[in-house]
Design a protein around this nucleic acid. Structure first.
Lengths: 332, 332
DNA sequence: CTGTTAGCGCATTCAG
DNA sequence: CTGAATGCGCTAACAG
């Protein structure tokens, strides 16, 4: 149990002073400490299993190399990727993540921020859930902070979000580029910020494409896709391609098509959204991915640059959504 | 920017000594400091937005109230629940989680443990992935540690795992209790620890039930369910109920049944596993849940009790798996 | 080139 | 009841 090996022990064992140990182990000993002693220090440190106490260092530097994260994403199925991306990028710069869960409850969120601040985190990431609007409290601002997968209605904060508009555009282009000109769009519920943005992207793609499109407010679940899919596909005047609110809806549409004897992709092309791990690849569904991991990485990058003196620009940093081309879209 | 308000500032503002501030704010002032001064201290602390610096406190107490977590679960779709459960339980005792990602790579895992130890974490949780075998390195043991969703082949570590055997038992009982006597089991791949355990539970349930059962090694994906489901159901001698390796396989089986004109649940009862959020509820599928959140909570509880002097028993703590009764099982 | 010193912010003595 | 002193482990500055 060499749990209390301190720099003093190393100095003693190497026959030098504590400062010498510090210099050597921090690579600042080059013209200062004899090569002989440097070796001695390293050897002693190794032998004793010395690990510099980061708490003491933090106290001294008033810098913890800790990034606070307030999040609800761990509970959801996908959002974990943000944490993964963030930890990895943080680790590259010798930073660690201090994670607090706050389940979409304003009071919890504020208490979490307080707790994190008391721990002297160097920066703050708040990821309160799927692309919500979130107004930073006053405490947010004591240290550099960015919103992740959330937007600030007042536009003052720095936000990292997925490019939903671009994603909506790309989803529709998938069909347009395959020659489809009669398209339907099944949107999610308007309460979600993403719904409006994807719709805007979709409309931009349609504009001047010479195609026509029916837009139907649908929902997020497989039943919704089943219902609206059946409605769209039952009859002679049916679209040749459907862009769906997400992969679950797409699964419903595919099911509806199957019931009507319409083959996907031969009789109908379908595009999803989310790249849902238990749906999309299985169904060979073309879809738009959620760049969670990249978002987590961007958030940490912004934070780290701000911590080392950089400026944090207000506004949204859009992270591009990957386009997954699979077999559910066919040329027409 | 009152980022550097220290206990000294509070003492100054309240017209008392630093010790007085410390005593009052730690509730140890009862017969020691005048009520008058106590109020003054609290008021000043509040007004200045004083937050005791936890880093300094950690250094002094040589206790950080930090729990290190080495994990791969954030990248997967479900495992986030473990983190959620762990953070919540930890927060209740004023502890926070220090999370490091290590993607199933032994070297990363060991480095992560080193980094966490250097941060003076009070305890360690290692959750390397879905119920893997994982041998603790020597560094693991410097502080109290538990394995989460993993087992120690040498049986020396304390492990918190889901009760897969009980889950397999419960899944089969779901059919047995509904009167089914001709059952099939589609298992996952034998490489996974869970597969063997669920099978054992299944066999225990069958034993003495008077029913018969075909066991088929199947896989984890929807195609596997589709293929094996079609094989099982095509012909006159088909089972009345099927227990599936997971919900994706169950979805495949349900699809196969639909193609053969067999209604679920009228013509066939189906049980899944995992309570996959984008499948199970949608398909009204009876299934067994993964108690991720409870596992995270248990792990933290064990750790905290060990930190405060308790003993950590070697062996596995089995967390019961919730049984979700839905519409895919019918009495026969 | 080396050793000593000071101080990060806190909680805990101990002497007033 | 208070103020001064101590030490947690580290590093930067300084004096030898």
């Amino acid at each position: 149990m060499n749990h209390k090996v301190t720099s003093y022990d190393v100095a003693l064992a190497a026959g030098v002073s504590r400062s010498a140990v510090s210099l050597v182990l921090n690579g600042k000993a080059d013209g200062v400490i004899s090569a002989e002693n440097q070796r001695a220090v390293r050897e002693a440190a190794e032998r004793l299993g010395y690990r510099p106490n980061r708490v003491a260092r933090s106290l001294r530097d008033s810098r913890t190399h800790l990034l606070g994260v307030v999040t609800d994403v761990t509970s959801g199925p996908y959002g974990g990727g943000m944490i993964t991306g963030a930890t990895i990028r943080a680790a590259e710069s010798d930073h660690l993540l201090l994670v607090m869960d706050a389940q979409e409850c304003r009071h919890d969120e504020e208490r979490a921020i307080e707790a994190l601040l008391a721990r002297q985190v160097d920066g703050l990431i708040v990821a309160p859930g799927s692309l919500r609007e979130w107004t930073p409290p006053k405490a947010f601002g004591q240290v550099p902070g960015v919103l992740l997968d959330a937007t600030d209605p007042d536009g003052r904060a720095t936000c990292v979000v997925g490019d939903e508009t671009g994603g909506g555009y790309a989803a529709t282009r998938l069909l347009l580029d395959a020659g489809h000109r009669d398209i339907a769009l099944l949107t999610g519920l308007p309460a979600q910020v993403a719904t409006g943005r994807r719709l805007a992207g979709h409309e931009r793609a349609m504009r001047g494409s010479g195609g026509r499109c029916r837009v139907v407010t649908c929902g997020w679940d497989i039943d919704d896709g089943l219902r609206e899919g059946a409605r769209l596909l039952d009859g002679p005047d049916r679209p040749t391609g459907i862009v769906c609110a997400n992969d679950r809806v797409a699964a419903g549409v595919i099911l509806a098509a199957a019931r009507l004897g319409i083959d996907v992709p031969d009789g109908l092309s379908v595009v999803g959204y989310d790249d849902d791990p238990s749906i999309a690849a299985q169904l060979d569904l073309s879809t738009i991915g959620l760049p969670h991991r990249a978002m987590g990485e961007r958030a940490v990058e912004l934070l780290l640059s701000a911590i080392s003196g950089g400026q944090l620009e207000p506004g949204e940093l859009l992270v591009p959504a990957p386009v997954l081309r699979r077999g559910s879209v066919r040329m027409v």
